[in-house]
């Protein structure tokens, strides 16, 4: 009875520990986001603050200033649920539903066709170049 109770407690504490670590690491990543946003504003950079933050973190990881263990669990948790994080913004389309009536509606196929052109050409070129590299070796 007693060992089992201890086991459950240990399991619970390791669970809580895991979530605590994930939360702390997400907080750490949030710091990079804030720094990136600040730099983007003050230096008027042409890329968004989140991308600036990503590049800073990447440099930090490269130079071994930041051990990968400091972010790995938080980063994996966020990336596993990346689709969820887009939902609140994409729901914003409800404010523009009138866009999908009348002449503007034709812009939907235009955007799609342009997207397919980019996807198809980039995909074929990327595949061709990568395969060529493999053959050369």
């Amino acid at each position: 009875m007693k060992p089992q109770g201890i086991k459950v407690l240990q399991l619970m504490s390791s669970r809580i520990n895991k979530y605590l670590i994930i939360s702390l690491q997400i907080g750490f990543l949030f710091g990079f986001y804030l720094v990136g946003g600040y730099l983007q504003k003050t230096l008027a950079l042409p890329v968004p603050g989140s991308v600036v933050g990503m590049l800073i973190l990447l440099i930090g990881l490269y130079l071994k200033w930041i051990p990968i263990q400091w972010i790995s669990q938080g980063a994996s948790a966020l990336l596993n649920h990346l689709p969820l994080l887009f939902v609140p913004v994409t729901v914003g389309i409800m404010q523009h539903l009138d866009f999908f009536s009348g002449k503007s509606l034709w812009l939907v196929p235009i955007v799609l066709v342009s997207t397919w052109i980019v996807m198809g050409a980039t995909g074929l070129l990327g595949q061709f170049l990568a395969n060529r590299k493999e053959w050369d070796r």
Binding site: L29, F30, Y33, L61, S72, G74, A75, L78, L79
Partner: peptide, 9 residues
């Protein structure tokens, strides 16, 4: 925002 930063991983 932090998720985009996390793409560095």
């Amino acid at each position: 925002g932090p998720a985009i930063v996390a793409l560095a991983f």
